[in-house]
């Protein structure tokens, strides 16, 4: 029951959010600020995680491929596929759900409990659209870049670890990276991640926007935002993967 109530209210909030902004120049400025908060400030953590996961993937895959019957390029190929298809779009989105989701939910939640949202509404500003739309747009713009950067860094991490610990030769690894390369897979990853960015921003914004009470409740909204955004990513990942890859 609660779930249906929340889904209904979420859809209404989204409808309210997708309204033309009052002042376009101000809107552009907001979007740029949010790109900084959502995109640029996430690059550090995304890079660190990608480089390490890439390196570890290579070590593990190399360990499993010690059989001389497996051709040398398999390692580069396998690592490329795991990073492009699943790690960069989905795992990175799950991690960012924690980072971005909690900050959005607590920011909007604090504005709710300190009556800043009421102040916007009184003035006649559509608070939902004013607060949420710039973040959604910024997410949609940032995530494709984040995903591509994560792919590049993840694969470089893998390459470095392969060469450094002599798990594979540089030539074999690069042959593997180029082997049976389908550019559509990158588009597929970008589509997925873009959709996940929408889920992260909108779901955490929803829990923030409907916060009631005080500081404790802001914390609770922030947790809920992260949890439900993550669950939504996992569920839609299943559906999108089935739709896009079969």
């Amino acid at each position: 029951m609660e779930l249906f109530y929340n889904i209904g209210r979420y859809i209404l909030l989204m409808r309210q959010s997708f309204q033309r902004p009052l002042n376009h120049r101000y809107f552009v400025r907001q979007v740029l600020n949010e790109i900084e908060a959502i995109g640029i400030s996430s690059l550090g953590i995304v890079s660190i995680i990608s480089v390490f996961i890439g390196a570890v993937l290579v070590i593990q895959a190399g360990y499993q491929m010690q059989n001389p019957l497996i051709p040398g390029y398999t390692l580069g190929y396998g690592v490329r596929e795991s990073i492009i298809l699943e790690f960069a779009p989905t795992i990175v989105s799950l991690i960012l759900a924690g980072k971005i989701g909690s900050s959005i939910a607590s920011q909007i939640g604090t504005m709710r409990v300190t009556e800043q949202i009421d102040a916007l509404d009184i003035m006649g500003v559509n608070s939902a659209s004013f607060l949420i739309l710039p973040k959604i747009v910024a997410g949609l713009i940032s995530f494709p870049f984040i995903v591509v950067i994560s792919m590049l860094i993840g694969i470089s991490g893998g390459y470095t670890s392969a060469v450094l610990w002599e798990i594979s030769s540089s030539n074999d690894f690069i042959t593997g990276l180029n082997y049976w390369f389908i550019p559509y897979e990158i588009l597929y990853a970008i589509i997925k991640a873009t959709f996940f960015s929408f889920l992260i921003v909108s779901i955490s914004a929803y829990y923030g926007y409907y916060t009631k009470g005080g500081a404790n409740d802001v914390g609770r909204s922030s947790t809920k935002g992260v949890v439900f955004a993550s669950v939504a990513i996992l569920l839609s990942n299943l559906v999108l993967t089935k739709l896009l890859l079969s």
């Binding site: 002042n23 101000y26 504005m111 300190t114 009556e115 800043q116 009184i122 003035m123 006649g124 500003v125």
Partner: peptide
């Protein structure tokens, strides 16, 4: 609404904006 001003119990200033930007905000919009 354009003719209404409201002072909230906790001030409800936008905490990411300076005082000047807060006061300019309704004018801007």
């Amino acid at each position: 609404r354009a003719e209404i001003g409201m002072l909230f119990q906790g001030s409800a200033l936008f905490d990411s904006m300076t005082v000047l930007d807060n006061v300019m905000f309704p004018l801007l919009m």
